[in-house]
Each structure stands twice: as structure tokens, then as C-alpha cells.
Design a protein around this nucleic acid. Sequence first.
RNA 1: CGGGGCGUAGCGCAGCCUGGUAGCGCAUCUGCUUUGGGAGCAGAGGGCCGGAGGUUCGAAUCCUCUCGCCCCGACCA
Length: 574
Amino acid sequence: MKFSRLFLPTLKETPSEAEVVSHKYMLRAGLIRKLAAGIYSVMPLGVRVLRKIENIIREEMNRAGAQEVFLPSIQPSELWKESGRWDFYGKELLRVTDRHGREFCYGPTAEEVITDLVRNDVRSYRDLPLNLYQIQTKFRDEIRPRFGVMRGREFSMKDAYSFDMDEEGANESYQAMKKAYEAIFRRCGLRFSAVEADTGQIGGSSSHEFMVLADSGEDTIVHCEKCGYAANVERSRLPLPPTPADPAPHMAMEEVSTPGLGAVEDVAAFLKRDSTEFIKTLIFKTGLEERPLVAALCRGDHGINHVKLARAIGCAEASLADEVDVIKTTGAPVGFAGAPGLTIPVVADNWVRNMVNAVTGANKVDMHIVNINPERDFPEGTEWADIRQPIEGDPCPECAAAMGLAKGIEVGHIFKLGTKYSESMRATVLDAEGKEQMMIMGCFGIGVGRTAAAAIEQNHDEAGIMWPLAIAPFKVILLPLNANDEAVMDVAESIYRQLDESGLEPLIDDRDARAGVKFKDADLIGIPLQVIVGKKGVEQGKAEIKIRATGEKMMVDIAETPGHIAELVRKHAP
RNA sequence: CGGGGCGUAGCGCAGCCUGGUAGCGCAUCUGCUUUGGGAGCAGAGGGCCGGAGGUUCGAAUCCUCUCGCCCCGACCA
């Protein structure tokens, strides 16, 4: 491909809307342009990257026995009403009405459509297992799209759905997908972690998220260097705290005045106690009728994880109560709540249980209690659970080694769905005895554009993108520095032809531009290998090869350049 | 949804407070020079100042409404 013919408008300056690196470079390198909030056009260079990723996905999905289909993006409301999600999905579902007044939605996912397809055409256990996937545009009307294609509203996603006769088969399908995903992201050249994840509203027994490790990630994960355990914080398991070998004797509770001090840190400083000796009491709304408000407790230096709490309570979503509810339930303004005397249900984090002579709120303005001992002083019926946010250095649930925290970008998510959709939509097959059985389903997604963005987050420098070879839009860029010098152009073109014939996907910067411009653009768009052809080099029969990611440069004989490139491609291909 | 910010040429911005009919840098086009890290000089094109209404002799500028975009926040007691 000739640079002069390529629709590749690069930008010297970053458009003001971009905040994160991947977004900035995707705009500057001419990969995407914004049309509306969270909606982007993909330009030729961007399309080449997406196709690379898609093809890796296809190869690995096919290898894992899945078959590609292509489902409609516009889906009738009837199916969504049948699954119960027409009402449940809320405002993220973009609803449209056709000229006859029939309701449709733009598919944010395709469980309904695929389940409908399969239930109509699969009748026998002999047809299972079945795994169907597609790469399709999805639309989710996010409250706040941001970071370019990282959290867009319209985006391309690979979604796969597995159908099995029984649990065992479903597990096999799940494991096959997990293996395929690992292969996909490895081949894309990404550093990633498959972490245990929350199943959220979808339910089911297990779920893994594939996280590309990057500081700009929106998700936090805990991971153990020693044994490899890794989980989304929302799903993190924390072991019980060590029992103190020689606990101090329990002293009598006592109220102390803490005028105007509600926050743990302030009270701790005032009482000259460590925040680890505090018990924090938070009031949450549950949305449940039988217990609309719940008190959640954790150690002073810990935090409550809302998702873990919601799971412990058994509600859809737990959010902090407002001031009015706090006063109503505790009798004191925000900052002075404590478990003793509370009449609402109390859920306490496991790490609070064996605290001794701790400090907590007294449910009175400007008062705290010292020497509280949970087993002795907490209300009858207090529930104990793992509801807190992990912190750096927490022990691993598998091997007890200290764990670390990291930020990640969720590029893939795999779920065991169980019979959620096969039940609501009556997707059954006949087993060997001729009895109807619910199909056991799984679903598996990969964000294609997000994978590209994540690759940039992980592979860039001040000059621009450094594409991993496997997903680079071109593998090599030729930079003839003197477009007017026939000898230089001849050499560059001859190398270009040879690379092209070897399938090495070269791009040649044939523009009549200054060397600096070509270097800057080449670095920005991040082609992994650069071949620099200059006047002096040509006179000596040499060309220069530069590896974008490392900056490594080497002078090679012109005749041997294509061979060298081929060798480098072979060596650096993951 | 709440809060903050911004809409002026393809991109980055100034002008607005204190109304007088739009400017800078980059990019684009032409010519000459230059040519291994975003060249220099000379010239040129390109904007109903997001939109609507109002105030005024006169509005990018003041007022009202509206649309769009970006960022922050779901309260850690």
C-alpha cells in the first residue's frame, strides 16, 4: 500500500476531547473519528487492526469447535419480553419502533436471538454440544460513554453461545472457551490475566474476566504472584483473618466524646488510636421490601465492596443510604453509627469478628464507644460475611501469600449461564430416553475495538503506538527519505515489491515529504518495523532497519533487507 | 440523574469581561529554495463564531431558551 493513496489523516495535535492514551493515539494516528458521543467511525488503518483481531478470534473460535453465524442487530421486543429482559435491561437498551408501531431494540447482546434460533432447530441431544458465535455491532446506551472506543455505546463484539445437554458438557464448553480466549489474547500480544469475576445479574456458577493489565483500566483486580490466583475485586475471596495468639482481655464498653469528629481518621487521631482498631458502620439501601436498610461493618482502614455486600444480602444492588435514613436508623448524624443497639439487620465483615477492644460509633451525636468486642457486644443475629474491598498485601485465599492490586481493562468475559434463558424461553431437546431436557448454556464475549484500545494502552511511548506484530495494520513501513531521488525510490520500491510478494504487508511512504515528517508519522502509527532508505545508505548499498518498539537499528545490505525483515517477523510473531 | 467545563476554519487555540462586523499557530493549495527527526520565504483558499429567540443603530461578545460535546460524582460514617 502506498502512503500517498491511503486515507490516513494523522494529527499533530491531540483533539481536546481525548483523555486516555489509546483514545488520543487512535484519533491522532487516523484510526477513528467521532460521530457522536460513544459512536465512532473506523478508518482504513483502524479497520486493518480490527480485522487482524477478528481473524485471530475466528481462527481460535473455529479451532475450539465453534461455528460462525451472523445474527440481526435489530431484535423484536417479543423475544426480550419472553426472557424478561425487556423491562429488566432498563435504559441501556436502545428501543426503536417501526412504521407499524412494532417495538424493536438494537441488540446489546444476543442471548434471546440465539436461544430462539437454537430452540427452533435443535430437537435432539444428538445435535449437542453446539457453540455458535458472531462478530457483530452491538449498542448499549451507556449512561456515560468515555475514553473513546474503550467504553463506547456502539461497538463491535464477538459473542459466542454454547448449548450442552448437562453440567459436565457445559463445563467442557466453558473450559474450551477459556483456553481459546487465552490463545487469542496471547496471540494479540497482550499481557493479560484471566480473573474470577462476578456473575452479576446473569447468575450461574462461574465466570472469568480477561483483563489486560494497564493503569488506565476501569476495573481493579487482586492477584497473587505466588500461586497465580487472580480475581476482580468484586469477586475476590479473602481468607479469615489470623486469630490473635494472645488476645487482650475484653474491657468494659465506654462512651467517649469525640466532638465534631465522624470520619475514622479524625477520630483515630483524636483518640490516638490506629484506624485498624476501628469498626466502621455504614448504612445501605438494599431495595428489598423485608429489609430495606442494612448496616454493613468493616474495619476502619477497610472499605465495603458494594457488589460483595449485595451478594451477601441477596439484593440486586446495595447503595449507601442518605442522611435522613441514617439519622432515622441510628439516631445520630452520619459519622457516629455503631452496631450496638441497631434494630436493622447487621452484616459484618469477617475481619471484624476477632477484633478486641475496638472503637466504633455510639449512635449519638459526637460520641464513640471504646472497648467494643464484637462477639460480646454486637446485636443478636449479626451475619458474618466477606464483604470488604481487598487492599494491597491482603493474604491470598489459595496460598496465603501477600496479594497485589492492579488495574485492568476487561476485554473478554466468559459465563456459565445455566438454564436462565433455556428455561424462560423453553429451549429444550429430547435426551436419549426421549425426555425433554433444558439445554445448559454458556456465553462468551470479546470486545474487538476495546482489545485494540487495550493493546495501545499497553504498547505505546511518547512518540505513538507500538503495535504488537500480530495486530499491526502493516508489518513493515518503507521510508524512502528522498522522494525525488530516483535511486532511493528504486531501491525502496524494489524492497517493497519483494516484501509484498512474501506477504509481509508493507506500507511505503512515497510522499514527497521531509524525512522528519515521515519518521514522526511512522512512529505515531506504530508499524512494528521500519525500513529507512536514504541517499547515503543507497550509495553504500545499505538500508536501515529500525524496530519501533525497542528503537533498535541495524544497517543491512539492500539485497538482504527483505530476508532480514522476514526473519524479524518470524522471530517477533507471538 | 446531579455537579463542573467547553462549542469560533480540518486540528489546537485567542477574541467575549468592557458590543463596532473575526484573528493566531499547525494543516491545505501555488511558486522558489531546502531535504536523515514535524523546513524557510512569498502568496492563496477556507469560518452565516453550535442553533433559535431577545436587547441594541449595531451581537462571536449582553440576556433567555435549546442542542451537542468533555470531565467529575453514585456520598466509606
